[in-house]
């Protein structure tokens, strides 16, 4: 009995319970987000969206997931097989690991690392590798196009993203996500860093390959981009990763700018999730309103506008901090 209690109190148990929780959260979250996306899109487009399966189509995505699981996994003839098989897994694992450090509330955090934000940004970069693997291995010109675009886009948008995040970090003086949230107990950082917040949102949209920056999978040009040749569960993993990435991007926005778990009346975790889904709603709103930008415009926008702006913002932040 004592042993069990000891085990449950230990860091190892926390990790195991946490990971199970994360896997559950990731699946439920993806199912919910896909449903939400369809509903948001539908209501913006004057139509009801899925209505048949469950109340207001609530379990439509569960039905879709079951359908996808039943689909044949087609491996086209001339693909680079090991890489082709590995890519969906490689895109999914780092996404899972990022959840380790996200502080859902004061206590609900699996591992409060002192380099939390660095870990998330590092893992976010890994998804590019998976996209490149998927595109390259598919032996399809459209897929390669998508992969190349994805790499160029992520390299370009990572820089302003990091610089923007930097300006928050020098305000707090810590990479630890819980410290960053704790520093916002009086006011949210979005109030003092509005430019950084907008920059972050733009970069996060680009990093998660969402419209208007969804060039790697621009279907009117590239059919389906890097996942053109994927079917069944492999395709579903890419899909799952996209929505989970969105969740992480929104969670980081919540931690950095929207005061994380802080809020009156409700427990912290509810406030945290509310803010996350509000940011996700914003990202969906972008997608269903804007046309897609052209590739050269996208890169120009990053290098000529976002990066200088991010640096100016960082300099001003540093200057103000020094004066205080």
């Amino acid at each position: 009995m004592e042993l069990v209690a000891q085990f449950l109190g230990s860091a190892g148990a926390r990790m195991v319970v946490g990971l199970i929780g994360v896997i559950a959260l990731v699946s439920v979250n993806a199912l919910f987000l896909i449903w939400m996306e369809r509903k948001v899109a539908a209501h913006m487009q004057l139509r009801p969206g899925p209505m048949e399966v469950g109340p207001h189509g609530a379990i439509q995505t569960v039905a879709d997931a079951i359908k996808l699981m039943g689909k044949e996994l087609i491996t086209p003839e001339k693909v680079d097989k090991p890489v082709f098989w590995l890519a969906p897994i490689v895109i999914f694992l780092p996404v899972l690991l990022s959840f380790l450090v996200i502080p859902f509330s004061q206590t609900m955090i699996i591992q409060d690392m002192n380099v939390g934000i660095v870990l998330i940004l590092a893992f976010a970069t890994l998804s590019v590798l998976a996209i490149l693997m998927a595109g390259w291995a598919s032996n399809n010109k459209y897929a390669v196009f998508g992969a190349i675009r994805s790499v160029a886009q992520n390299v370009a948008y990572e820089i302003p993203l990091l610089v923007t995040v930097m300006s928050i970090i020098i305000m707090v003086g810590s990479f630890k996500l819980s410290d960053i949230v704790a520093a916002q107990d009086r006011y949210w950082f979005v109030l003092v860093q509005p430019v950084a917040f907008i920059l972050y949102l733009i970069c996060a949209t680009a990093e998660t390959n969402r419209a208007p920056f969804d060039l790697p999978e621009a279907e009117s040009e590239l059919v389906a981009g890097f996942h053109t040749e994927y079917t069944g569960m492999r395709f579903a993993l890419f899909f799952l990763a996209e929505y989970t990435n969105m969740f992480i991007a929104a969670a980081v926005a919540t931690v950095l700018f929207l005061g994380g778990w802080h809020g009156p009346f409700f427990p912290g975790v509810i406030w945290f999730l509310l803010k996350v889904y509000a940011v996700i709603f914003l990202l969906m709103w972008f997608r269903w309103t804007f046309p897609r930008v052209r590739f050269d415009q996208l890169i120009t926008f990053a290098w000529k506008i976002l990066i200088p702006l991010a640096f100016v913002n960082l300099l001003i932040t540093a200057f103000v901090l020094k004066l205080r």
Partner: peptide
């Protein structure tokens, strides 16, 4: 055309 440019919503507006 707007769908070609990647915007979905106008498509459903004008189909309405």
């Amino acid at each position: 055309y707007l769908m070609d440019l990647g915007a979905f919503t106008p498509f459903l507006y004008c189909f309405d």
